[in-house]
């Protein structure tokens, strides 16, 4: 069983983001593996263990500085990794990135692909689903459980109207939600082993792709500005002798000042 996981780097969720020149300024911000992708990596390793003899390949579009985070995925238990890096990809939209990933992943003969439900940077949530469409595969988004047997899958997802139960045949793409598993930490043995695991670097040319088509210069979605949300002004602490008095003052304010109850 061949399992492919797509991961990306995002700014640390604890980071405060600033704007410079009309764009989010990520200089000096610590980059981490997208938290939703950590669930995808863990699920891939769990499934490989369950299925016995499965192997996991991690694929990332990144840069030279991404190697550390990518190596950490190997330390968790993936066999090998592909790092796609090309300056032309700067500003590329998610469907372009899905085309790049398709070119890298198609030769691997994957039985299924896992990815996080969305990057917690631009929050598109598109790449994994677009990849399924480009491959002509089915997909299930936002999965909170997955079981694989005899070339078929069943999966569940937290829908807005209730828990959704899905079924279908492999190959397929699954995007993971938080709650599906508890990502492990790398063991010392894993960290040592990761140093010897292969990371193949690929450019667009290596993948037989034309930068004019999949590069950022041809993106169909473009950022034209960015600003920080209006800063919320601190309100007031409600004083009172007793809990009853404080709450009475609060209810009065909510009813007559804020008019929300």
């Amino acid at each position: 069983m061949k399992i492919v996981v797509i991961v990306k780097e995002v700014p640390d969720t604890e980071a405060r983001i600033t704007i410079s020149d009309g764009k989010p300024d990520l200089n000096g911000v610590k980059m981490i593996i997208n938290p939703y992708d950590e669930y995808a990596v863990e699920e891939a390793i769990l499934q490989a263990e369950k299925l016995g003899g499965g192997s996991v390949t991690v694929v990332m579009i990144g840069s030279d500085s991404s190697r550390k985070n990518l190596t950490n995925c190997l330390a968790l238990g993936a066999e090998d990794a592909i790092l796609i890096k090309d300056d032309a990809l700067s500003g590329a939209d998610s469907i372009q990135l899905a085309k790049v990933l398709k070119a890298a992943i198609e030769p691997l003969g994957a039985d299924f692909i896992l990815a996080g439900r969305q990057g917690v940077d631009h929050d598109w949530g598109l790449t994994g689903i677009a990849l399924a469409e480009l491959l002509g595969w089915g997909h299930v988004g936002l999965i909170t459980s997955l079981s694989i047997a005899d070339g078929k899958f069943s999966a569940s997802a937290d829908g807005d109207s209730g828990k959704m139960s899905f079924a279908g045949s492999l190959p397929a793409v699954f995007t993971t939600d938080k709650g599906i598993n508890e990502p492990r930490y790398a063991s010392l043995k894993g960290i040592m082993a990761a140093k010897k695991k292969p990371v193949a670097e690929k450019t667009l040319a290596d993948l037989g792709l034309d930068a004019a088509t999949v590069g950022g210069a041809n993106a169909k979605v473009r950022f034209v500005g960015a600003e920080l949300p209006p800063e919320k002004q601190p309100g007031r602490i409600i004083e009172g002798e007793t809990v009853e008095a404080k709450v009475a003052a609060l209810v009065d304010a909510l009813r007559n000042e804020a008019k929300v109850i």
Binding site: P11, R16, I17, I19, P24, V120, D121, H122, D123, A219, K220, V221, R222, F223, V224, G225, A226, E227, L228, P229
Partner: peptide
């Protein structure tokens, strides 16, 4: 049309445009 879309779960509000006939 220019769409306003939060990034980083709302830490930034971006303005985004389409550039396609599709």
């Amino acid at each position: 049309v220019v769409a306003r879309k939060p990034l980083f779960a709302g830490k930034v509000i971006s303005s985004v445009k389409f550039s396609t006939e599709s």
